[in-house]
Amino acid sequence: MRADPSPDPRQERSAQSDEALRQAHASPPAEPTGSNVGLSVGLAIVFAAVAYVAGIYLDRYSGRFSPLAYNEEAPPIAAGAAAVPPPIDPVVLGKKQYAAACVTCHQPTGLGVPGAFPPLAGSEWVTGNEERVIRVVLHGLSGEIKVGDKVFNGAMPSFGKVPGSGYNWRDDQIAAVLTYVRQEWGNKAGPITPEKVAEVRTKVTRDKPWTAAELSAVESAP
């Protein structure tokens, strides 16, 4: 019927019945014919090549299936890198803390404001006894204080996790900011550890700021 001399172009003719179509496609080829073998081999070769490339690609760009790998060019991130964060440099943390709170009074230079806020640079209160300076930051300080040869009279708030503190800094934050001010602006005192801060905080119970006189007594403490 494909040879129908004058098919009506307005109707599509079936060229074969559904049954014939099914039968033609149902029977498997009796034996591999020439073109079929060529196609089999060709498909197998092409697919093997593609699978090889796909496999290489997967290996190269999978980031070892890590949820933290976002750059396929970067070296793989070690397992557990997220669980163990890199150690914090106390000076970096301290600088942040200083910039967040201390800088308003003691200034970026650490020189304070003459007549109002005492300097930290070159101050014996800062570089001296560890326990004393920890107490100042933990609980605050008020009243007259002599720094160098000048006398200041002000009030420093408490920063530690103690009653009445509006800051509630953790031990490591206080340790970091003290380490920072003890080593900045030419100061050359040793670092202060969070353990030392924790020790002072548990040992000393206090709910009001220190006075300079009280702190001077600490000097003699062991």
């Binding site: 949820p67 914090i88 943390l93």
Partner: peptide, 18 residues
């Protein structure tokens, strides 16, 4: 698979900024 991975990540606590 990816949802379980990402949900386990959660947010990131930045100790510097607390």
């Amino acid at each position: 698979g990816s949802h379980r991975q990402l949900r386990a990540l959660g947010t990131h606590f930045d100790p510097l900024d607390n």
